[in-house]
């Protein structure tokens, strides 16, 4: 029987209360929500926090909303809720693509968006999806709130910029053609599409490799592009070199294939029980190309 070691348990109902509890318990406290990463680690003594602060009742973190021209996804939003959210799917179908292949439906009922990002597993899917969308993370601590680009959020495997005493509040993705500016300089509207492609050995498993793509088009050209990669040791889960291939180009099969080739070249997959490095590198390229093709198709729909 696997049982976690003893810990002190606290329940918070607001962000303020969570931060106060984090301050009181110090570095050995951990926040828990879905617990589907942390509790298994505690059973194996890979994690042994002295205090757990349960944020499942912090309702202000559980919302998906549009505000200031951005889609805001609260840290406590369950995977199933993001998958079921029409507003998220309408603006960023990549989020539904990714959620559909994260774990299984019952785990998705419990696991949270913020928990997955803060766990920062190097094979995590949403890191690549939010990375492709150029999202930012809002983090609150005793000294106030700060916003960090998701491309600076991860500092290594299982490590993020969220410091002890701080709490991830939400993810924000700019809806660029919408309210709040950020549209093309011409004053028109971007055509936008996004998609996520993953290869897993069995349903609900971590990916061998996965790629997310986001395209913003104007006047028949790619004004901006985002490529996210996971499980292939791409720095910060993104492929900026491949994005550079796309920026300013006229979308075509050749351009998408070239972006895939460059994405594959710049990642650094390792061989493990899920597959050999060369196969993962092949997947990184092929899945990037497929995600771009589907994202482009959606932008024209």
């Amino acid at each position: 029987m696997q049982v976690p070691a003893n810990f002190e348990y606290e329940k918070a109902t607001t962000v303020e209360e969570t931060l106060a509890l984090l301050a009181r318990h110090g570095d050995e406290a951990r926040v828990v929500a879905g617990g589907h990463s942390l509790l298994p680690m505690m059973k194996l003594r890979l994690a042994q926090p002295e205090a757990l602060i349960d944020i499942n009742d912090v309702a202000e973190l559980a919302r998906i909303r549009i505000e200031g021209g951005m889609l805001c996804v609260g840290a406590l939003v369950r995977h199933a809720e993001l998958l079921d959210s029409p507003v998220a799917g309408e603006h960023f179908p990549i989020l539904h693509d990714a959620e559909r292949v994260i774990a299984d439906p019952v785990v998705r009922n419990r696991g949270t968006v913020g928990g997955s990002l803060c766990q920062a597993d190097p094979s995590e899917d949403l890191s690549a999806a939010f990375g492709a969308l150029k999202a930012s993370a809002v983090i609150r601590g005793p000294d106030g709130e700060r916003t960090v680009s998701l491309r600076e959020f991860h500092t290594g495997p299982y490590e993020t910029v969220v410091e002890p005493g701080e709490l991830l509040i939400e993810l924000r993705i700019p809806i660029r053609p919408g309210v709040g500016g950020g549209g093309p300089p011409s004053g028109g509207r971007y055509q936008h599409g996004s998609a996520y492609e993953k290869v897993e050995r069995r349903v609900g498993d971590w990916p061998l490799a996965a790629a997310g793509a986001a395209l913003w088009l104007e006047g028949g050209r790619i004004a901006d592009a985002g490529i996210g990669l996971t499980a292939v040791r791409a720095e910060h889960f993104v492929a900026p070199e491949a994005e550079e291939v796309l920026r300013g180009a006229v979308p075509s099969e050749e351009v998408f294939a070239e972006a895939g080739r460059v994405a594959a070249e710049h990642c650094d997959p390792g061989s493990d029980q899920r597959g050999p490095a060369d196969y993962k590198r092949h997947l990184a390229g092929e899945l990037t190309t497929r995600a771009l093709r589907r994202a482009y198709g959606r932008s024209q729909a």
């Binding site: 589907h36 349960d54 499942n56 299984d104 019952v106 785990v107 419990r110």
Partner: peptide, 27 residues
Amino acid sequence: CDTSNCGACVVWLDDVPVKSCTVLAVM
């Protein structure tokens, strides 16, 4: 399985099925 893989322990928590080997009773 104790690892939230097998689903033998699924119960409803507030009307939603969850894997009860990965939920604390206090939650």
